[in-house]
Measured scan of single mutants.
Amino acid sequence: GTLHLNGVTVKVPSLEKAIKAAKKFAKKYNLEVQVHGNTVHVH
């Protein structure tokens, strides 16, 4: 999967790991997580 954090793109081995990391990051910075196919966006 691919993880987008505020314009930074990170390749992640699995989508589940990407979503987990995204949710952790989003919670910390009070951001929103959106999943588009195998790409996770945090903004």
Rank of each mutant, 00 (worst) to 15 (best):
G1V: 14
S14W: 10
L15V: 08
N6F: 15
V8F: 12
H41C: 15
Y29P: 01
H43L: 12
L5F: 15
N38L: 10
N38T: 12
G1E: 10
G7A: 05
F25Q: 03
N30C: 11
V35M: 04
N30Y: 08
V8Y: 13
A26I: 07
L5W: 15
E32V: 13
I19G: 00
L31V: 07
K20G: 04
K20P: 00
G7P: 02
H43K: 10
K28W: 12
K28Q: 10
L15W: 06
G7M: 08
F25M: 09
G7R: 03
L31E: 01
S14Q: 05
V10T: 05
N38K: 09
L5E: 03
P13H: 11
S14E: 04
V8A: 08
K28Y: 09
K28N: 05
V40H: 02
V10W: 09
N38R: 10
A21T: 06
T2H: 13
P13L: 08
K23M: 12
V40K: 00
A21Y: 12
A21F: 12
V10M: 10
E32K: 07
K24H: 09
K27D: 13
V10E: 03
H36E: 12
L3I: 13
G1I: 15
V35D: 01
A21K: 08
T9L: 14
Q34K: 11
H4R: 04
K27S: 08
V12F: 15
L3R: 03
V42T: 02
I19A: 02
E32C: 15
T9M: 12
K11I: 12
V42M: 11
A22F: 11
A22R: 00
N6K: 07
S14D: 13
V35P: 01
Q34Y: 14
S14A: 05
K20N: 09
G37Y: 05
K28R: 08
Y29N: 07
N38Y: 06
L15C: 03
L5M: 11
K27N: 06
K24C: 15
V33Y: 05
K17E: 12
T2G: 05
V33R: 00
H4A: 04
T39C: 14
V35S: 01
E16N: 09
V10A: 04
K28S: 02
